[in-house]
Design a protein around this nucleic acid. Structure first.
Lengths: 343, 343
DNA sequence: GATCATTCCGTTAGCGATAACATAGGGATG
DNA sequence: CATCCCTATGTTATCGCTAACGGAATGATC
């Protein structure tokens, strides 16, 4: 059976409903949008007609006529990172009853693709844009600036935003972790993370981390980087590699929880004394960690909260002609778990 | 600094570019869409003008005029399930150079929300719809039927589709797993999974599984269901609960890999003999499993492939007035891993 | 019963782009 | 040099809907 646009071949329009119910198109439009005064009797008649015809309004035409689009563009690097779906979930929740709807674009961590995706989004004239990170191509920045709608850059506050910004300081997060680690007496410290030509937040964490170590007169002992593949497996492999290369290391700082979890599993299997002989910490505070044999030390990145707050700003500002930019810095909380020894 | 739509307050239109470059709007439109003959000289002039103005075309107007929208609606139950981002990734890849773009809607496993999301999507008149599952409300089915565009229902082939269908048979998957398990000599078998008022695919797997057991004269020994929370943790907890309640059980079949992984970690910690005394299996074949201490038996759900194929069908059929419905059944492969003993 | 406010619904004019057709210039052709 | 034919551009008429205004009933008010 082939598709049939309601028997005839022509898609339904307001006019069809109007004719079927014996009132003007305008009145139908009013009924369907719940706007303006319409008598209960005609309202019923129109709804009835729309329902039996199976009419679905054409938002394209509606948006063009009203100069209003109930969409919010959300641009993120990836969907498989676990972190971003959570941010999205925060956004959706907050937008739920504002009449706004998120539309997602994925950049795969590529600045060029980000530019393309942004262009594509803006061409639909959304009511606002939420975009991950503060680093964009010059063109992308210009587009954001000229978009004429609220823009919220999320995840990161270490840098200059175009309009509003909601996130945490990754530098400070790294620094804080370094302080906790050195306070706990660890001295030979290794870092494991993604190759970071484009992962600016991981880079900033590492910078902050190094700075924190420096405060205690310590220099990073060893580093290991990966890209692609199963993060859990990579964590395992990298940990093995690093401990083989530098057996005297006493702490491993992972740039995300997934590879941290892999490392933890590896260490437990090998029977290392965690956290006595070897401490471990990750980053993000993902739910996954709760099921591990031991709770990995980590830092909550406030993902849902970032989503909520960003969405709230967009919802509040959209509609207003122009509004003040806001900068919201959230405070991630260090969770010691069971993989950092108590000082 | 507040947002400024390119200095003035009025958003740019084709007319602005037209005036800036001294040609008609039509010619500008032609240049920007690479359509029709335009001399190299004017093409340059127009592009230059568009670039310096920072013009972004208005797709709303374009879509209305051309009756064409380069969007494909993709409706899935969740983004945090790991499975769906992978399907999406398959879709994106396949759509990459067709000029089509996926737009995602999430239903949270609620049929009502599915209906709403679908309505919303259709009101943008997409070129096609890809939707997870075969079970929809009557209204939703009607909308799909009348949409007048290609519809592909994905993930599942056990049932009647509206138009095209791409997926695997979950009944058969369950059945096949049951056969493998009984062939390996396991007899007292437990099932652990989500509460499934709405998870039809998990339900079908369980049905097929029970049927497979019945073929060997076996009845499911015990079951345990959960909802919400960290799947890894739940897997752990449910496994503990079941083994306490039914200590003589010798196989645990999990409805997804994540809870399976939790169960596996639990069993290893407790020092159970896996797969000798106790066998384990999950479902999906997620990448995560590669990093576990032992490879969990599972069945690949062909997620990327489903996405690709569905997108391919939509891409091929969109534009055509009406086309034949296709049904594609993919074959999941049983991966024994290290948690089923060799027969 | 004239005036006026309400309530309800219709009319008109776009929104910003594109499809389809029209047309102005050259060459080429005989 | 008249005709035809391209190529490169402009004109006109929508696309389906909504904003803004208009106006006919109805009832209230003095």
């Amino acid at each position: 059976m082939a598709r049939s646009p309601n028997d005839s071949r022509r898609p339904l329009t307001l006019r069809d409903v109007s004719e079927a119910s014996g009132v003007s198109e305008m009145t139908v439009s009013r009924v369907l949008r719940n706007r303006g005064d319409v008598s209960e009797a005609t309202r019923e008649k129109v709804l009835e007609a729309a329902r039996t015809l199976g009419y679905v309004p054409n938002k394209i035409a509606g948006a063009l006529a009203s100069q209003r689009v109930n969409l919010v563009g959300v641009i993120i690097p990836s969907l498989s990172n676990l972190v971003f779906p959570e941010v999205l979930s925060g956004i959706s929740t907050e937008l739920e009853d504002t009449g706004l709807q998120p539309v997602v674009g994925v950049t795969d961590y590529s600045p060029e693709k980000e530019e393309t995706v942004l262009y594509e989004m803006l061409s639909w004239r959304p009511s606002g844009v939420i975009i991950a990170g503060l680093e964009h191509t010059a063109t992308a920045r210009a587009m954001l600036q000229n978009a004429g709608v609220p823009v919220v850059e999320i995840m990161d506050v270490d840098g200059e935003g175009v309009d509003s910004v909601v996130g945490i300081s990754h530098r400070r997060a790294g620094l804080q972790m370094a302080q906790a680690i050195t306070a706990a007496g660890y001295r030979k410290i290794g870092f494991l993370g993604t190759k970071m030509p484009e992962d600016h937040r991981a880079r900033k964490r590492l910078e902050g981390f190094s700075e924190g170590l420096a405060q205690a007169g310590i220099v990073l002992h060893d580093t290991e980087f990966y890209s692609g593949g199963s993060a859990l497996l990579k964590g395992r492999e990298m940990t093995g590699a690093m401990l083989t290369r530098s057996p005297d290391i006493d702490f491993l700082y992972y740039s995300n929880d997934m590879i941290g979890a892999g490392g933890l599993l590896y260490c437990l299997e090998k029977g290392f004394d965690v956290p006595g002989r070897l401490g471990l910490a990750g980053f993000n505070g993902v739910e996954l960690l709760e099921g591990l044999p031991r709770r990995l030390a980590t830092m909550d990145a406030c993902r849902r909260e970032i989503g909520r707050k960003a969405a709230e700003i967009v919802a509040r500002q959209s509609g207003t002609a122009s509004a003040e930019s806001e900068v919201v810095e959230l405070q991630p909380v260090l969770q010691f778990g069971d993989t950092i020894r108590k000082p």
